[in-house]
Simulated assay, not measured.
Amino acid sequence: MSVHLNHTIVPASDRDATATFLVEILGLDPAPEYGPFRVVSLGNDVSLDVVQAGPEVPSQHYAFLVGDDEFDQIWGRIKERGLTYWADPFHQRPGQINTNDGGRGLYWSDPDGHNLEIITVPYGGG
């Protein structure tokens, strides 16, 4: 068996709100509880296990590879909510998307400041 990422833990100041934010923006199924976690299941058998943390949450980066239709839907939900988005990870190009590697990408923040990214082509052009 090759090595696959199975899950990663996402710390949150409000576990339920963060899990709900992720599933709503990304268009995923509701996140069930599993022990102290809310499990956000992604399409490649990987999950984001959202856990309650203290009031100060260290910012992490989570990138999602999506198809063109999913990109348009997610981007639409970001705009509908009035969320700021950027074309770059350092948030220097607000209100823009990038076309890196022949695809499209953008960044936005979750309620705890995690830097979220969607891309349609993997880095290096896939």
Rank of each mutant, 00 (worst) to 15 (best):
V66I: 10
H7E: 06
D112Q: 06
I9A: 04
E70P: 04
H91M: 13
I118Q: 05
D16Q: 03
D29H: 13
I97Y: 01
V23R: 06
S41E: 12
G95M: 11
P36D: 13
Y85T: 04
H91W: 03
V57Y: 08
P30R: 14
D110C: 08
I119W: 00
T120M: 15
Q92W: 09
T8I: 11
G67W: 01
D88T: 13
V51N: 02
D49L: 03
G54L: 13
I25S: 08
P89C: 10
G126C: 00
G126W: 01
N98I: 14
G76E: 11
S2M: 07
G102N: 07
R15S: 06
A63N: 00
T18N: 03
I78A: 13
H7K: 07
D16I: 07
G27T: 13
D49G: 02
R77E: 05
G103M: 06
D49I: 01
I25P: 02
F90C: 08
H7G: 05
V50I: 05
G35L: 13
V57N: 04
W75L: 15
T84C: 13
V40P: 05
R77K: 14
P122D: 01
S59Y: 00
P122H: 00
D101L: 05
T8F: 11
R15P: 02
I74P: 03
T8K: 01
F21C: 01
L83F: 13
G82T: 11
E80A: 14
L5T: 00
G35C: 11
L106S: 04
D14V: 10
P55H: 15
P122E: 02
N98L: 11
G54W: 10
I78T: 10
D69I: 08
G102Y: 00
G43Q: 14
V50R: 02
N6I: 05
Y123T: 07
V46K: 09
A53N: 08
E117V: 08
